[in-house]
Structure formats: C-alpha cells, structure tokens
Amino acid sequence: MRLSLTSVSVRLGTAPIVADCDLTVGDGERVGLVGPNGSGKTSLMRTIYRALDPVAGSVALAGDDIRTLSQRQIARRAALVAQDNAPDFDFTVEEVVAMGRGPWIGAFETTTGRNNAPIASALERVGLAGHRTRRLSTLSGGERQRALVARALAQESPLLLLDEPTNHLDVHTALELLELVRDLGRATLCVLHDLNLAATYCDRLYVLHRGRIVANGPPEEVLDPELVQAVFGVTCTHLAHPITGGLLLAFSPLHAAPVPALGKGSNQ
C-alpha cells in the first residue's frame, strides 16, 4: 500500500477541520478526493506531506509512519503538485522542473548527467520542451500548471499527490493532463472539483463532507444521485457518455423546473 491514512483528525487552531478519516491508495491505483469547498480536502492532503500534523491518527507512506521519515525521505516516496505552489523567484521552466530532482541529488551535486534525462522526459510529457528557457512569469496560467506537474514527474516518486491539478487549464489541456497521469501508471491521489473528470479518470473516489469521509468506492457507486444532492446541493442524473459509454453526470439546481417536451401544440 503506497499510502494509508488511519483515523486522521486535523485542527487549525481550535477549529476541527477533518475528523476520523481513513483513506488508502494502492500501487498503481488512481484515487480521487472530492467534496464541496471547505470540506477539508486540501487540509487532509497537507497532512500527507507534513505541512499539517494530525491531532489524532496516523499517515503511512509505503508502510512507514511519516513521523519517522525526513522530508527528503517523504519526497522520495511522494511528489506533490499543490495549489498555488509556484516558486517565489522567476526561474526558467527548466530550472523549475529541475527542482524535482532535489530529493535525489547530494549537497554538491548538480542537475546534470543522470539527472538530465528525467528533466527532459518530464518537459516532453507535459508539452513544454520548447519552453525550457522561458521565464515562469511569461507563461499562461495553464502553462505554469504544466510546469509544476513536470517538476513532480521529474521527481520520479512512486506516489503522486495532485491538489486540483486542472486549475487554470482549458478543457483540452485538462484532459491531456489527466490522460498523462493515467498513462504513468503511478499510484495517485488527486483532489478534483469536476465530478465528471473524477468519474472518468479515477478508479476509486472518497467523498469528503464537513470534514468526514461519507463515501468510498468506484465512481458509479459513490456518485449516486442521493449522495450528490446531499453533499453538493444539486440534482444529479446518471447518463452514459455517448462516445466512451462511461458514467456521465448531468447537474441542475435543486427544484429546477424541467424543460417541457415539444409536442404537437408547441411552437417550433
């Protein structure tokens, strides 16, 4: 098991944020974490890389409690793409991606030789090979996000932690990115707002509501209309995707009036 959270509870100051959460990600498994704004998704993610300490419970990476691991050891096991996690200084794209090699190089070693191949591969995979010398500040929001994903890929850790990786991406780029993540075959925990993307690209989903896991399982089982209404406050209808045949969710506001069907007496 690449990742295991057991009865994890988190507080910010005196405010309870997450309570008694259990979550696992197995080898090669793509797991999604979904829930409304403020439900505790990012806080739960932050406990995994020790930006927050749980007040109860434990987090294990590849079987070891993270409290026994150094930050370098954690980074060798899990690579993170966090929200708004761009470097403070205006590095080039290649320099940003090279930061992903940090956990693997010594104090006096540079990102040359054996470290060049993962950097080049990561840039190629996210479509930024031609932007390696561009400054991060000159990129669009979507390109900046892809640069941060490339940094995580260059880290070559067996577990990917993605906190809303499709933010700032157009539809084409978002789909390309999630296709890439699927093709990598790495264990992945991904926070997503878009339930249709989560249903398409995740093997299992955890639904977080008011700081608690309220459902866990395959998307077609977890995202049932009753749960979606209770957690997200919208009416949900299950459809079959016309191309893939997979689950497609159609949403409407609660109590929205249905569109009348056209009949013989209708104006056309």
Rank of each mutant, 00 (worst) to 15 (best):
153 L>W: 07
117 A>D: 12
254 L>A: 03
128 L>C: 09
101 R>F: 09
133 T>Y: 01
156 E>Q: 15
160 L>I: 08
235 T>E: 14
102 G>F: 12
181 V>T: 07
70 S>V: 00
206 Y>K: 03
245 G>H: 07
115 N>T: 03
249 L>N: 00
16 P>W: 05
194 D>K: 03
108 F>Q: 14
249 L>K: 02
76 R>Q: 11
105 I>Q: 11
98 A>M: 11
83 Q>Y: 09
96 V>N: 02
230 A>M: 10
184 L>M: 13
136 L>V: 10
167 N>C: 09
216 N>K: 11
134 R>V: 04
54 P>H: 02
33 L>S: 05
255 H>C: 11
91 F>S: 05
207 V>E: 00
51 A>K: 05
70 S>P: 09
117 A>P: 02
45 M>Q: 01
201 Y>L: 01
248 L>Y: 00
43 S>W: 03
3 L>S: 08
7 S>I: 05
108 F>V: 14
75 A>Q: 03
41 K>V: 02
156 E>W: 05
202 C>F: 06
121 S>M: 12
125 R>F: 01
74 I>H: 04
52 L>W: 01
152 A>R: 01
159 L>I: 11
70 S>W: 05
31 V>R: 01
224 D>E: 14
106 G>I: 13
151 R>G: 07
184 L>A: 10
229 Q>D: 14
246 G>H: 11
118 P>E: 06
217 G>Y: 10
17 I>A: 13
40 G>L: 05
104 W>R: 13
128 L>T: 01
243 I>K: 12
209 H>C: 04
80 L>V: 15
84 D>G: 03
155 Q>Y: 09
243 I>N: 07
267 N>F: 13
159 L>G: 07
178 L>W: 07
264 K>N: 10
240 A>S: 14
248 L>M: 06
192 L>E: 00
92 T>C: 08
34 V>Y: 00
236 C>F: 00
91 F>G: 10
86 A>F: 02
89 F>Y: 03
94 E>D: 14
220 E>F: 10
60 A>H: 12
59 V>P: 03
38 G>W: 08
6 T>Y: 09
181 V>F: 05
25 V>W: 00
31 V>W: 02
82 A>R: 06
247 L>Q: 06
219 P>C: 07
105 I>R: 14
14 T>W: 04
188 T>E: 04
121 S>W: 07
94 E>I: 04
216 N>T: 12
147 A>Q: 01
152 A>Y: 06
105 I>Y: 11
50 R>A: 02
111 T>L: 06
72 R>M: 04
89 F>H: 07
174 A>E: 00
111 T>A: 15
136 L>H: 01
255 H>Q: 14
119 I>R: 04
64 D>H: 12
3 L>E: 06
169 L>E: 08
257 A>K: 14
142 G>Q: 08
86 A>N: 08
78 A>L: 15
30 R>P: 04
167 N>L: 12
169 L>D: 05
187 A>W: 00
210 R>K: 13
142 G>N: 02
21 C>V: 15
129 A>Y: 01
117 A>L: 10
